[in-house]
Simulated scan of single mutants.
Amino acid sequence: MEQFPQIALVVTAIFVLMSIPMAIAVGVRRTKTGISLLHGEDENLLRLMRAHGNFIEYVPLALLALAGAEIAGTPSWLVAACGGVLLFARLVHYFSLSTSVNGKGRAVGAALTTLAMLVLALAILWQLWIYS
C-alpha cells in the first residue's frame, strides 16, 4: 500500500468539517436579514463572512504545507504538532472574529497560524536540503 500523508489527511478532514458550519452560519444570517449579496449594513453578517473568508484564505495553503512536510519526511511528531496548532489557531481566530472585531483571540489565532506555516515551510526546505 502506498504511503499517504495520514496526519495531513486527518487534519484536512477536520478542517473540511469545520468549514461547513461556518458557511451555514453565513447563509442563516443572510436568510434572517434578507441580504443576498455583500453584507448590507449588517455588522454580524460582515463578521461571519470575514471569519469564514479568512479561514478559506489561509487553511488551503496551510494544509498544502502540512501535507508537503509530511510527504518530505518531516518527523510525524512535528507534523502532528503543527496540525494541532493550526486547528487550535483557526478555531480561536474564527470564534474571536465572528463575535468581535477587536478580539485578542484574532491576533493569537493569526500569530499561531503564521508560526505553524513558517515551521512547516522550513521543515519542507530542510528535508529537501538534507536529502538532496
Rank of each mutant, 00 (worst) to 15 (best):
T31M: 14
M22C: 04
V16Y: 05
L37R: 11
L38E: 08
G40D: 13
N44T: 10
E43T: 01
E43Y: 00
L17T: 05
K32T: 11
V26Y: 08
T31S: 14
D42V: 03
T33S: 15
L37Y: 12
P60K: 09
M22T: 02
A23M: 02
G40A: 11
A62G: 07
V16F: 06
K32N: 13
G34T: 13
L38R: 08
A51D: 06
I35C: 12
P60F: 10
L46H: 11
A25G: 08
T33V: 09
T31A: 15
L64G: 15
G40E: 11
L17W: 06
V28L: 11
N44F: 08
L38P: 12
H39Y: 12
T33E: 14
L64Y: 09
M22Q: 03
L46K: 10
M18C: 08
P21G: 09
R30H: 14
I20M: 04
G27A: 06
K32Q: 15
D42K: 03
P60N: 02
G53L: 07
T31N: 14
E41T: 11
L38Y: 10
L17I: 07
L17V: 05
A25S: 11
G34K: 15
S19C: 03
T33K: 15
E57T: 05
S36K: 15
H39K: 08
P60C: 04
P21Y: 09
A62W: 11
N54Y: 00
M49I: 12
F55N: 02
L61T: 15
P21R: 12
F55I: 03
L46C: 07
L61D: 09
F55Y: 10
L48N: 07
G34A: 10
N44H: 13
K32L: 15
